[in-house]
């Protein structure tokens, strides 16, 4: 039964000589032993014959020249911009294409979010974000100076003791003042 379906699907191509020699031989062999498929072949041959006859008799009466002139005119004519736009929109936003617009927008948003997070120090007040900020300092009684320098984005914490203060922990001379 499956063979019959395949043969009947291939009959058109077989009659037009479009099948490979192997397929053609297989169809021919099947037709030799299958009455149903031979009947289908006869029906198809009859339809083809009728169509050929009709085309042969009516084709002579058809005027192709006016048809061709109309086609040429359509090709040459300059269409108004709104028609061009409408056709472009119809092609671009047709359902199968726009189907990917939502996922594409989501993907773009994810990429944007990731890039933004990665380079967040470059955003907006980027210069300020490049600085190290100090939340708290406890220098346990020593003096401490904090310097933030714009040009080099430098944050510096400097520990020092007053000259008159004692340095109990080291024999090194104490720093008398911040060195900047």
């Amino acid at each position: 039964m499956k063979d019959c379906e395949r043969v009947q699907e291939s009959l058109g191509g077989w009659l037009d000589g479009e099948l490979s020699s192997t397929d053609s031989d297989w169809v021919r062999a099947h037709l030799g032993g299958c009455g149903d498929c031979r009947e289908a072949q006869r029906r198809l041959e009859k339809i083809t014959l009728v169509l050929h006859g009709a085309l042969a008799s009516e084709g002579r009466n058809i005027e192709f020249l006016p048809f061709w002139h109309a086609v040429e005119r359509r090709i040459a004519e300059k269409r108004p911009w709104h028609v061009e736009l409408r056709d472009w929109a119809r092609g671009t936003f047709s359902a199968p294409r726009i189907a990917w617009a939502v996922p594409a927008a989501i993907a773009a948003a994810i990429v944007l979010f990731s890039v933004n997070s990665y380079f967040s120090s470059w955003r907006g007040s980027g210069a300020r974000n490049n600085f190290t900020s100090v939340d708290s300092i406890d220098a346990y009684g020593q003096n401490v100076a904090l310097l933030r320098e714009d040009d080099t984005k430098t944050t510096l914490i400097w520990l020092y003791q007053n000259q008159e203060g004692e340095n109990e922990t080291t024999e090194e001379p104490p720093q008398s003042a911040p060195a900047f």
Binding site: N130, T132, T154, T155, I157, L159, N167, P174
Partner: peptide
């Protein structure tokens, strides 16, 4: 002896300087 206790917020891959302790 504690000399300094600080909490800072450094930009990722950034730095800051801490100076002052005398040496050589």
């Amino acid at each position: 002896k504690p000399l300094l206790d600080t909490t800072v917020r450094i930009p990722n891959r950034g730095n800051f300087l801490l100076g002052g302790p005398p040496h050589e």
